[in-house]
Design a protein around this nucleic acid. Structure first.
Length: 887
RNA sequence: GGGCUCAUAGCUCAGUUGGUUAGAGCGUUGCGUUGACAUCGCAAAGGUCAGUGGUUCAAGUCCACUUGGGCCCACCA
């Protein structure tokens, strides 16, 4: 066995063990009918992704679950993969093209897509390597990509099925349009944020009397060029007389009608609203209802089109200025008020969304939502923390149809073909004629037999492929053995930001295509923020790079620190110093293990603990640590099973550090060569390492391998079995008393400013004779850790001037002094304690004197309070004796 | 407009179904390095649990309101 360094060096161990795990296929899972399955599908990171703290947290949690379940005997599968991330990836590749002075149109569709694939091959696995650095135990042999051939088959299949069920339709509606990406977006992809804008009051003259105006208020004056009506509320007395009259729309020189509709809010703006049916969703509805004209005044890249007359070619915001300028000179701009408005922004490039009328494909979602609502209501899918249930249900119950077509190139092309011969016959309105939706490209048109078929140019929303992730990764629509065994999956771990994008839709897909839930538990973790509460992001420059932390502190430290501060679902405010806790803990584990390894005899690994226990060969100290260990194990499992990761991490931390190291290892030093100590010390370390392994996989593996009895990996050692008979609260209490006494002596020493390394004498005065027998065998422990030279036991406390005494339960702890210490100070301190105790006693007495309390509180609580009061009364007598001795 | 969430030690946060003297990590202060660990040990200081009112024998915990952060949803032109 090689010498261990004084400090843990994560770099040396991490890559080494990861290789071993991979080489031995410890991460692979196979359908195993004799074992229960446990499945997690990874939220597939974008191929453009690089590991950030959110990923680190998300994947640490998943790895903890997978490693725990694997050790526990489940066939645990963690399905990995990446998402093609349509718009995001296309944007990235377009940027690299721009450096060559090229646009994607210069290459053409096919060549461009080739470039994207090239980019993907080159950079698309970056995040996979980074996940490995984190220690993730994904079954990499199953790595999937949402644009894999098989996966695309599933996407096409789903489109065709939904189309055939009439749950997919095509139509012209107002959608969210990103003028920069030049594509439609779903409602979820338009993230609304407030911005400071203006409310512009425009005057439209009446045709019959141009001196008379109706003033409308708008935030987007440039759209007035597409106005086809002005609407007022029918109840609005101010405008009643104008309803049905005609206005001369300035600049556009068009006649528009004044219509009335209840939807108009009389109290907003002027109570008269301009109606632009082609550029606003509300106006669109009004346009439909009142049979208005739809005039599109913009081009897809956000410029004014030739319907906009002289403004044609101007960018929409430049056009706004120009329009305002011209209205002003016409005297048609009444005023401008500051106004905060909320505008949609493209979730990929943050450009302000333009509501835009265009022909798109939609999923009819209401029927899909129905079983997805029911499943959650009935608890077949559970959210952790539970409050997300409401968020999910609220969205699901108010679900809108899903716009799934995107006008970009990178993605799954719609399996929609048009017959050129039939196209002429197609009306603008919905008609299936000449539209062929098919799994494979058809040879000829089923309507006219024409062979001139072209495929729809659009691709599908990225989420239209990711919503199939829990089963498409198992090669659905094939009924594979893996699909049957591993699906439905067990737990989904993700952040709150993609509940609508992804989680909700997966539930819908699960029911629609598999007739069951896609997962049983959804664990929603918090968002990682910087110390000021801002979301961590590269663009804000406040991000802490997990890889940097791994390089500096190690992956185990990163994981442990992250987990220990993330209480269930709560956001995390993170600073770099936070990771020192994990690093220090790793180092503590390392050094405690180093100490044990230096003293351990290999045969200790072979003994059977139960035999030893039954033979009565375990002393109280060893029984104590075993009891504490199994109590901890019990707690760890309870917390893990309800996704309380921080509590688990913290109980392991405090058990290992503050009980095992601070007390146990210190106390056993004098008896370290005793057989029972050897065995227990080995046992507790070995099993604690196993409990820690899901949290800190590398260091626990490294140390386990150095202990006797190692298998190829600690993963194979499995999860320790709870041995409830080892939990002994009586033993725990007795040892706790010893610790309390030691603490008191240490405290007294510190109060007296005695050098911690000097030995002192102590007398314990304990009136209860029977207690003497219990404490006698424990005296050596006290002597050891409290640095006591002579420890005597007596039955009676005799107050004396040259001593310092303290009280613990019914015991006086007496420290003889050689006269150097100031008795005045001791007296003050003792009196202070008495004063505090008196106050406590008074409040207890009041409490117990209250008949309401004694009558209504549970008997055991009242009894406990009585006992407590008695103890306090006893203590005060003893303290008073001490005080009298000092006087 | 609706909903969620947070406010506890100087900082970051725990605190289970209401029930002893409210905890941890970091930081601070004092003492301590001859063999596990200074990425350490021992000890200490530090909290009217945001405010007000209520329910209760009992409130950090439950309820209402107030104040101040953060987030989400919604078609206020």
């Amino acid at each position: 066995m090689t010498e261990l360094s004084k400090q843990y060096n994560p770099k040396e161990t991490e890559s080494k063990w990861y290789e071993v795990w991979e080489k031995n296929n410890f991460f692979s899972a196979k359908a195993a009918p004799d074992k229960p399955p446990y499945t997690i599908v990874i939220p597939p990171p974008n191929v453009t992704g690089i590991l950030h703290m959110g990923h680190a947290l998300n994947n640490s949690i998943q790895d903890i679950l997978i490693r725990y379940k694997k050790m526990k005997g489940f066939e645990a599968l963690w399905m990995p993969g990446t998402d093609h991330a349509g718009i995001a990836t296309q944007n990235v590749v377009e940027k690299t093209l721009a450096k060559e002075g090229l646009k994607r149109q210069d290459l053409g569709r096919e060549k461009f897509i080739e470039r994207v694939w090239e980019w993907k091959e080159k950079y698309g696995s970056t995040i996979i390597y980074q996940l490995k650095k984190l220690g993730c135990s994904c079954d990499w042999s199953r790595l999937r990509f949402t644009m894999d051939n098989d996966y695309s088959t599933a996407v096409t299949e789903v489109f065709v099925r939904l189309y055939e069920k009439k749950l997919i339709y095509q139509g012209s509606y107002i959608i969210n349009w990103c003028p920069r990406c030049q594509t439609a977006l779903s409602d979820e992809e338009a993230s609304h944020s407030e911005l400071q804008g203006h409310l512009y009051y425009l005057k439209y003259p009446l045709e019959e009397n141009p001196q008379e105006f109706i003033t409308v208020a708008t935030t987007r004056p440039e759209t007035m060029l597409g106005d086809t009506a002005v609407a007022v509320n029918p109840k609005d007395k101010r405008y009643k007389k104008y309803i049905g009259k005609v206005l001369a729309l300035p600049l556009a020189s068009r006649r528009i009608k004044i219509i009335s509709d209840n939807i108009v809010d009389m109290h907003f703006g002027t109570g008269a609203v301009k109606v632009t049916p082609a550029h606003d969703p509300n106006d669109y509805a009004l346009g439909k209802k009142h049979g208005l004209e739809f005039i599109t005044v913009m081009t897809p890249d956000g410029k004014m089109n030739n319907m906009a007359g002289k403004y044609s070619g101007l960018d929409r915001f430049k056009a706004r200025e120009a329009v305002l300028e011209d209205l002003k000179s016409l005297g048609c701009l009444e005023k401008i008020d500051p106004h905060t408005l909320s505008a949609g922004h493209c979730y990929r490039c943050h450009t302000i969304i333009e509501p835009y009328l265009s022909k798109q494909w939609f999923v009819k979602t209401k029927p899909l939502a129905k079983p997805a609502i029911e499943a959650v209501k009935k608890g077949r899918i559970k959210f952790y923390p539970g409050r997300w249930t409401k968020v999910y249900l609220n969205w699901m119950e108010n679900i809108q149809d899903w716009c799934i077509s995107r006008q970009i190139w990178w993605g799954h092309r719609l399996p929609v073909y048009y017959c050129k011969d039939c196209q002429g016959a197609r009306s603008q309105e919905l008609s299936a004629k000449g539209i062929i939706v098919s799994r494979a490209k058809p040879d000829k048109c089923p309507d006219c037999g024409g062979t001139d078929l072209i495929q729809d140019e659009d691709v599908l929303d990225t989420w239209f492929s990711s919503w199939l992730w829990p089963f498409a990764t198992f090669y659905w629509p094939k009924e594979t053995a893996d699909l049957k065994y591993f699906y439905p999956t067990s737990t989904l771990v993700t952040g709150p930001d993609i509940i609508f994008f992804w989680v909700a839709r997966m539930v819908m897909a699960g029911f629609e295509f598999r007739k069951q839930v896609p997962f049983k538990d959804v664990y929603i973790h918090g968002t990682i923020r910087d110390i000021e509460g801002k979301k961590m992001s590269k663009s804000l420059g406040n991000a802490i790079d997990p890889l940097e932390i791994i390089a500096e502190y190690g992956a185990d430290a990163l994981r442990f620190s992250l987990i220990s501060i993330t209480s269930q679902g709560q956001d995390v405010f993170l600073s770099k110093e936070r990771f020192e806790q994990g690093r220090n803990f790793a180092n503590k584990i390392w050094n405690a293990s180093r100490f044990i390894l230096m003293n351990l005899k290999p045969e200790a690994a072979n003994a059977d603990l139960r035999v030893l226990l039954n033979a009565g060969k375990l002393d109280i100290l060893n029984r104590w640590i075993l009891s504490r260990f199994y109590s901890t194990l019990e707690e760890v499992e309870k917390n893990l099973n309800c996704y309380k990761f921080n509590e688990t991490a913290n109980s392991l931390y405090s058990f290992f550090w503050h009980e095992f190291c601070d007390w146990y290892l210190e106390l056993i030093k004098p008896q370290i060569n005793r057989e029972e100590t050897q065995i227990v010390m080995y046992k507790v370390l070995e099993e604690t390492l196993r409990l820690l392994h899901p949290f800190m996989p590398f260091i626990t593996e490294e140390i386990r391998q150095r202990l006797p009895g190692a298998k190829v990996s600690i993963i194979q050692q499995g999860w320790p079995h709870l041995q409830a008979q080892m939990i002994d609260l009586k033993v725990e209490n007795q040892i706790q008393s010893v610790f309390d006494i030691i603490n008191m002596v240490r405290n007294m020493r510190a109060e007296l400013e005695l050098n911690p390394s000097s030995f002192i004498d102590i007398e314990l005065a304990l009136p209860d004779k029977q207690a003497h027998n219990i404490i006698k065998p424990l005296l050596d422990y006290i002597k050891n850790l409290a640095k006591v030279k002579n420890l005597s036991l007596s039955e009676k406390y005799i107050p004396q001037a040259n001593q310092y005494a303290a009280v613990f339960k019914d015991m006086h702890i007496i420290m003889p002094l050689s006269g150097l210490v100031d008795t005045e100070t001791q007296l003050k301190k003792t009196e202070g304690k008495i004063g505090k105790l008196q106050a406590d006693i008074r409040s207890k007495e009041t409490m117990l004197g209250n008949k309401n309390f004694t009558a209504r509180a549970p008997a055991e609580i009242v009894e406990a309070e009585r006992v407590k009061l008695k103890e306090m009364q006893m203590q005060i007598v003893k303290l008073e004796a001490v005080r009298n001795g000092l006087r």
